[in-house]
Design a protein around this nucleic acid. Structure first.
Lengths: 147, 147
DNA sequence: CCTTGACTTCAAGTTCACTTGAGCTTGTAG
DNA sequence: CTACAAGCTCAAGTGAACTTGAAGTCAAGG
């Protein structure tokens, strides 16, 4: 097995499309060396980095946020336990917040909505405070992504 | 207080921008009567319908899905307990699935990632099976939205 | 009568996370 | 040596959910 991987191999192994890998590079989430031909060559460690990205995405972070986190991590060393510790704390509370919201919504589904009281006047379930202000153009931040 | 509300009043009361309300109407999620002037007039029941939409969005449904649900509900009557029951079951399991994923991710955050084993080869956390296939163009479906 | 604010439509712009296509080069298998 | 797969760049398209802007109408106050 070769020391360096081509973009196609990385795509197959990670399940992330080659076009997406190039896109991530453009956005500063990944780096690559180049073969003489100009073709990308990835060290095997890139797979861990990609796993990190996919993981973070499923938690609900945007690529911009993930890029910021990645910048704080050591670029070429494996991250230490301390590095993970900081991340872990921040992400955990993010996950907790989203879970809490989902549980609140679920509760509303059976009680508040079930009894027919769903109403913007009387019920805060559908409108948890912060939603009342517009947050600029474009699609709204991902459901629960910025809690 | 008037029997019928203007779009401005509905926007204020619901926290949803007037432009969004027009957009929802275009997409078939809302209806409105028109005053002689051509201005929209909403019966007060629209607030409940909007609450429903916002609620469903926070659960993670797309507007298209919400439109489908709304079509199955009685257009002008208040929905019955039976109507809610069906919805409640479907949405609850959706919420449960997403919560389960978040808990799995959180677990991975402290154990699998914490110990440094995050790897696409050895660890399924970041890549829960279905993610390996592309799902067409556009941004990926919402994290966990179609589980 | 005039202004101001709320409303109308319709087209075009915005963000996010990519994908697709055009046009060209590189690497490998027969 | 010739296919043809795989890679490259760069520009433009996609879908979701809206917002913004232009250009015009309507209703109420002074």
């Amino acid at each position: 097995m070769a020391e360096l991987l081509t973009i196609g191999e990385v795509a197959r192994r990670s399940g992330v499309a080659a076009s997406a890998l190039r896109f991530y590079e453009e956005r500063g989430l990944l780096e690559s060396e180049r073969a003489g031909s100009g073709h990308r060559r990835y060290p095997r460690a890139v797979l861990r980095r990609i796993a990190f990205i996919v993981f973070a995405q499923r938690i609900g972070l945007t690529l911009a946020e993930i890029a910021t986190e990645l910048e704080r991590l050591p670029a070429h060393r494996a991250p230490t336990r301390r590095d993970w510790g900081r991340l872990s704390t921040a992400w955990s509370s993010r996950i907790d917040a989203r879970i809490a919201e989902l549980e609140r919504l679920k509760e509303g589904l059976t009680s508040c909505i079930g009894c027919g009281c769903l109403s913007l006047d009387r019920c805060q379930l559908a409108n948890p405070g912060d939603r009342l202000g517009a947050e600029g153009p474009g699609p709204r931040a991902w459901v629960g992504a910025d809690d």
